[in-house]
Design a protein around this nucleic acid. Sequence first.
DNA 1: CTGAAAGCGCTTACAG
DNA 2: CTGAAAGCGCTTACAG
Lengths: 349, 349
Amino acid sequence: MVSKRKRRASGAATLLDVAKHAGVSPMTASRVINHHPHVGQEMRTRVEASVRALEYRPNLAGRSLRTANLVRIGVLYSNPSAAYLNQFMLGILEQSSVDGSQVLVEKCGAIRSQRAATERLLAAGVDGVILPPPLCDSRQTIAELDARAIPVVAVATGAPMPEVNAVRIDDYLGACAMVRHLIELGHRRIGFILGDPKHTPSALRASGFFDTMAAAGLKVSPAHVADGLFTYRSGLIAAHTLLDAGSRPSAIFCSNDDMAAATVAVAHGLGLRIPEDLSVAGFDDTPVATTIWPALTTIRQPVTAMGRAAVTLLTEAIHQRRQGQTGGPVQKMMKYTLVKRGSTAPPAR
Amino acid sequence: MVSKRKRRASGAATLLDVAKHAGVSPMTASRVINHHPHVGQEMRTRVEASVRALEYRPNLAGRSLRTANLVRIGVLYSNPSAAYLNQFMLGILEQSSVDGSQVLVEKCGAIRSQRAATERLLAAGVDGVILPPPLCDSRQTIAELDARAIPVVAVATGAPMPEVNAVRIDDYLGACAMVRHLIELGHRRIGFILGDPKHTPSALRASGFFDTMAAAGLKVSPAHVADGLFTYRSGLIAAHTLLDAGSRPSAIFCSNDDMAAATVAVAHGLGLRIPEDLSVAGFDDTPVATTIWPALTTIRQPVTAMGRAAVTLLTEAIHQRRQGQTGGPVQKMMKYTLVKRGSTAPPAR
DNA sequence: CTGAAAGCGCTTACAG
DNA sequence: CTGAAAGCGCTTACAG
């Protein structure tokens, strides 16, 4: 072991080492490692054994130098929710470091600064741009990028434009799954807190709620629906609206976790036990869902995986464009997960 | 602009392009870009102009291929707080992608699995290991790594072992600054919620509190100090202890944000307005601090920057070891920031 | 202070 | 199906 590590300063075996160890040419070793077809079974076995013996792992720098033609990816964001952005950027960086692509990040504030931020990104020579929410729905930015023939990936939009690449979950079905979960627990009076009407997923989550209630033959009292803006503070107000009223719901489905956390806080303030007296459900599975107590039942959006997927999609689009092709836009639908935690349970009565 | 982008498939200028544009050799261009001394002023100016004109940015793959001898960095973590880990990994990945180093991440659960996780990392050929909290204080893991001559960087430890590299903030001074802030606002009866006694920063934050109170000539009532475990739930219990009692404090300093968020929730439940009736302060500036309302006054720990610093420190240690040197361990102290938000204000009475 | 040559690790053509 | 040659972008010696 020690001698192996000392073979070279870097401590790592190279493709040449593997080839020598297996008694084949570097090319054959390369083909085996990259799973190319048309390699003899014997060669393949020998190389694979050597890879294991030497603990070979490809040097990405060497590979990308010869292949990838350096891809530059821009990420343009505004209105940062720290928690979301962290998770998302994690996926972006993971994938870009695997691909050997470079990432440039630009923040823009007001709408008018979108143009300036876009220009900065283009001046820096990016080959494509990723738009996390809420910029994923900015027609202006997308049009501008499109005019320059810069591929775009919109992330987590609720209303993907048909001509734009998108990575998202099915917000509608996610909401349906959550409502079904609450109904299966035995809840009949289920309240709902709407999301920010400016964000496209809000309408889908609301439709999922209303449709599933209707399909189950359950009436939704207007007093059990409150407006919200996705912020904790708006959740505080909405929860008071729902819980101060006479006929309380036995469960409240909130359009995101921040508002669900606020609902839990308000309920505790009113002396309600969760989940015994009130079930609360969120959406997104952001860190706050597992910070508070009880932890929130929620719909997990695989944010980090979506960051990875966005990079992969964009990279493919860039390569296609470089080769003069223009494959149609891709809409990648990611899997959501219903995560059951302590904030939901059968109603007491 | 367009013609520039089309010069080559990748759309990016290379060092050779810059050298030609400036009429110098690639070597001179390289030296200017890397800020080497002993380059003539005229050459320097010419190259810098060309860099700007061509929007040149170095291709990291090419650079690291020739220099860095591929560094492999392991990150070993346990007990993940999603929010912390996201922010931290962001810094790790940012820096490693700049350096062109590879990152391998291993999770370990119970103490006995630490050994297994360490072995997996070593088997994968890592050259050094970063230990975020709470593993930063695991004598066993550090000893094991040390026995294999693998450099280690401990992050955010409150009790750095003198022979180990560390990246951290001064938890003691951070706590002092927060208490001073509360005193300056006019608070005299200040409560405190302790952190998990197993985590080394807890004691430092507590000392900062008690020392600053004593220095200001303020008594700390035993009824105004409560145990905590850094979790939201433990904060709920601690806050009740402090607020249900007869003589309430006018401000509560919590050893971290999660417990501060819990304190805000309990206070709201008791009908106390924040900050009018009670000021609440946290520590760390995790995403929850800006999720809840009012947002928390807290001590910001630059988690992402600490991730970057850990990679830089570890990379230097690895290079030194490869050259047979063993520079003494480095303790990098990062700057904390007192972030004033809506949760603190002068006391009403 | 400046430059010509060689090579980091890998893969793309091009031959057999 | 397999391999010898060349080169991706950059920097490390080695000369001047």
